[in-house]
Design a protein around this nucleic acid. Sequence first.
DNA 1: TTGTAAGCGTTATCAT
DNA 2: ATGATAACGCTTACAA
Lengths: 330, 330
Amino acid sequence: MVTIRDVAQHAGVSPATVSRVVNGLVGYSDETRERVEAAVQKLSYETDYLARGLKTRQTSVIGLLAPMVSDALASKVMQGVEEEAQERGYAVMLGRTGAKSAFIAGYLRTLRTYRAAGVILISAVITQETRQLLGPNIPIISVAISDKSGSPSVAIDDEQAAYDATRHLLRLGHRRIGLLAGDPASVFVAKPRERGYLRAMSEAKCTPVTASGSFFYESGAAGLDGLLAQDAGLTAIFAVSDEMGAAVVNELQRRGRRVPEDVSVLGFDNTSTSLHVHPPLSTMAQPLEEMGRMAVSKLLRSRALGPKIMPHHLIERGSTAPPPISSPQT
Amino acid sequence: MVTIRDVAQHAGVSPATVSRVVNGLVGYSDETRERVEAAVQKLSYETDYLARGLKTRQTSVIGLLAPMVSDALASKVMQGVEEEAQERGYAVMLGRTGAKSAFIAGYLRTLRTYRAAGVILISAVITQETRQLLGPNIPIISVAISDKSGSPSVAIDDEQAAYDATRHLLRLGHRRIGLLAGDPASVFVAKPRERGYLRAMSEAKCTPVTASGSFFYESGAAGLDGLLAQDAGLTAIFAVSDEMGAAVVNELQRRGRRVPEDVSVLGFDNTSTSLHVHPPLSTMAQPLEEMGRMAVSKLLRSRALGPKIMPHHLIERGSTAPPPISSPQT
DNA sequence: TTGTAAGCGTTATCAT
DNA sequence: ATGATAACGCTTACAA
């Protein structure tokens, strides 16, 4: 292995000077810089990150914790994080928050002893315990979820997005719109989305009809059941995840209802799943990759704390249309 | 920060002894062990991985390179890798191979300077250049792809799996079976699968009908077009990825053909996509998470080199059935 | 069984 | 502008 001393010797300078050149600090002549750079090239010297990290007490590692590695939403965020980190010369260390809390404590420990530059948490709020486990020197930021504590985060305004999504359906002419909500335990995502829906429905003087799912595909069919049991004449279903939306499309068709001619379906998130049904799912999109990138840059300039709200936008595909003309208005 | 010296002092022993205890080596009495462990507890000492890695020239980091972070197949493998690594006390560092080769060189450099314990490559073969960039001390293994060079790998027997898949369709009674193949540039995945299909068809004295896609969903509809243009009476379509299979199901239904009553569709891989269509896709499954776990354990006991073949198995869901009785045999 | 001491490769302080 | 030198926190001969 070629060390900084080898380079120094080869260039006829001291290790300190090589370090200065390599790190772009000041304190050397153009001429020595050239000699050093030549030696670096020649010997193909590479800085030892371990040694540097030990000395500087900081490495170019970013911790990335997702509920599950194989999760459509998390995947898109991860993709953005990875890209931005890569471009800035940072390495990404992966972990799961879905695991037992003993595991997540382990991750944070690892990240701390590797002297990570920061930690990104996907779809999970920053608890007091997490903050504590991480120590005072490592910044942390959450993505795709926003609590009210003002912790650093990158997320959309879930309530407003759900409101806008519902308004869209209303504007198409629907009045009997069912909400397939998320797990009520999800206080910072499912709840605001439900509030947004309720507000839009109330403003439009429409009767809300809701059922709860788990966000996952598997819960979609049962959720649809619940909705239809309350109002069999629903002309639109707003599912707060694409997975549930896809399940609703499939289940509706299985029951002989056409999408969107008989019933419109609107999803949420714009994950890859929205493209995997026919007709493709209209959806309230979160800029997930962009949010991943933003999390990295926000983390790295440690000022600019607090929550960052990203824009949401509606994508119309084939699963939404005006209601059938025959449909009776409740 | 609490160091090994602090613990030593607190326990009234030398740093060397603390190190021995912490690392479970020999050379200390039960009584000192207890004193040291108590001190570790009391001060909540944690080994500094950077310092240890610098000294031992090895860290508990595993590099994981995927074509894209957000890729259904890679996601499942990553999930398995992450779980196994976590359980063994290893950290996972993420990278993309889909990026330009300058980037991948950068990843390997990073992994090398962090003294990674090994590298796992998803859906990419180990090139000479990769091997070289990594240096002689870091083992590497590929997953979900197997070249003929005998490099370490964990994969299924793609040709046999495709053969078995085709046989399954034949056994159901189909004779007019179209293959929606993968990108022909994919020499170590798409090609073997095509060979397996051709062999089974030839043995059964059936006429092969093939078209090529890209593995991605987007290429499914056009692929189906290509197939139907050659034989509009196909009763089964074997797509060599679930994404293409899902697209075929959706496109078939859009054209008014029922699945599986009119046409059976069989996918490949058993990724989450296979569940997102209706009827759910029957598929030739790869044990992707298991393969990820296996890659980690194989990597870590550096003996046991060479390729490891994992079992494939067919999962019947709703998209396959016997051909319609009226269907004329070619 | 235990301690001493010499690094691992880097950066930062203090001279010059 | 440059160089000695002392850490950073750990492991590991080698001694005792």
